[in-house]
Lab assay of single mutants.
Amino acid sequence: PKDEAKKKVKEAIKRGDEETAKRIAKKYNLDWDDAKREADEER
């Protein structure tokens, strides 16, 4: 599900692992900028 994928993307971003985050986002066709902004807001 997309929500689960987005959570994984945000967790990867918070760990500083943007490569993984981008790969997950691409795989699930998520909006990378959107997920990154959300992760930054939660930090």
Rank of each mutant, 00 (worst) to 15 (best):
residue 37 R to H: 06
residue 14 K to F: 13
residue 4 E to Y: 13
residue 4 E to K: 11
residue 37 R to G: 06
residue 10 K to L: 15
residue 35 A to E: 08
residue 2 K to Q: 14
residue 43 R to T: 13
residue 16 G to H: 04
residue 7 K to S: 09
residue 12 A to S: 04
residue 35 A to K: 02
residue 32 W to C: 02
residue 19 E to S: 08
residue 36 K to P: 03
residue 27 K to H: 11
residue 18 E to N: 08
residue 37 R to F: 07
residue 15 R to V: 05
residue 3 D to F: 12
residue 28 Y to D: 03
residue 19 E to C: 05
residue 29 N to V: 02
residue 33 D to Q: 09
residue 1 P to I: 15
residue 10 K to A: 11
residue 17 D to V: 01
residue 27 K to R: 10
residue 6 K to V: 11
residue 27 K to Q: 15
residue 27 K to P: 00
residue 24 I to L: 13
residue 40 D to K: 07
residue 19 E to Q: 09
residue 35 A to T: 11
residue 20 T to Y: 12
residue 22 K to V: 04
residue 15 R to G: 04
residue 9 V to T: 02
residue 4 E to F: 13
residue 9 V to H: 02
residue 37 R to T: 06
residue 6 K to M: 15
residue 26 K to F: 11
residue 30 L to H: 01
residue 6 K to F: 15
residue 11 E to F: 02
residue 18 E to K: 05
residue 20 T to W: 10
residue 31 D to E: 06
residue 36 K to G: 03
residue 16 G to Q: 02
residue 38 E to R: 03
residue 33 D to Y: 08
residue 6 K to H: 07
residue 15 R to T: 04
residue 39 A to R: 04
residue 31 D to K: 04
residue 13 I to H: 01
residue 42 E to V: 06
residue 26 K to T: 10
residue 4 E to P: 03
residue 14 K to S: 09
residue 29 N to T: 03
residue 18 E to L: 15
residue 23 R to Q: 13
residue 17 D to M: 04
residue 26 K to I: 12
residue 16 G to F: 03
residue 34 D to L: 10
residue 3 D to R: 07
residue 21 A to N: 00
residue 28 Y to R: 00
residue 35 A to Y: 09
residue 2 K to W: 12
residue 8 K to Y: 12
residue 2 K to L: 15
residue 10 K to I: 15
residue 34 D to P: 02
residue 25 A to R: 00
residue 21 A to M: 00
residue 22 K to I: 09
residue 20 T to D: 09
residue 12 A to E: 02
residue 13 I to C: 02
residue 18 E to Y: 15
residue 33 D to A: 11
residue 34 D to H: 06
residue 37 R to N: 07
residue 42 E to F: 05
residue 6 K to L: 15
residue 20 T to M: 13
residue 24 I to K: 01
residue 14 K to D: 08
residue 22 K to T: 02
residue 40 D to Q: 10
residue 43 R to F: 13
residue 35 A to W: 05
residue 22 K to P: 00
residue 30 L to D: 00
residue 27 K to A: 13
residue 25 A to F: 00
residue 10 K to V: 14
residue 43 R to L: 15
residue 1 P to Q: 14
residue 32 W to M: 05
residue 37 R to Y: 06
residue 6 K to N: 06
residue 34 D to Q: 13
residue 8 K to I: 11
residue 6 K to G: 04
residue 28 Y to A: 04
residue 8 K to S: 08
residue 41 E to Q: 13
